[in-house]
Amino acid sequence: MEDYSKKVMDHFFNPRNVGEIEDADGIGEVGNPRCGDIMRMYIKVKENIITDIKFKTFGCGAAVATSSMVTEMVKGKNINEALEITNKQVAEALDGLPPVKMHCSNLAEAGIKAAIDDYYKKNGKGK
């Protein structure tokens, strides 16, 4: 089977920001257990900045690695910057993903967006 990059393996074996945030300001869940991957993102937001982020993921090596990578990319950024992060950027930050695994990076982008969406809803800001 096609190799994962060293970075993917690093983020899979040592995932960053795994866990939950008890008093999260936004929680987003994407994916579907039928397809074998679910990503749940928890964010803390202070003055429009994502000050903390944690994730829980059910999925393959690429799903875990993209979750981990996207949390690193988003942490400390303001919300607008976080919303601009694309699948492609996540995959590139991991030095690429095997073609069959590209859909896993979609989840990372969608997961962040879902968490921010939830934050907006909770704060009555709408989109």
Binding site: F12, C35, G36, D37, G59, C60, G61, A62, A63
Partner: peptide, 28 residues
């Protein structure tokens, strides 16, 4: 949990195994 993740971690410990998960079959 998902099968491919199990296989990758087992591989780290030198154990070769397989799974019927989508990710190991290349389909959804």
């Amino acid at each position: 949990i998902e099968g491919e993740s199990i296989l990758l971690l087992l591989d780290m410990k030198g154990i070769c195994a397989s799974s019927g998960s989508a990710c190991t079959s290349g389909s959804l």
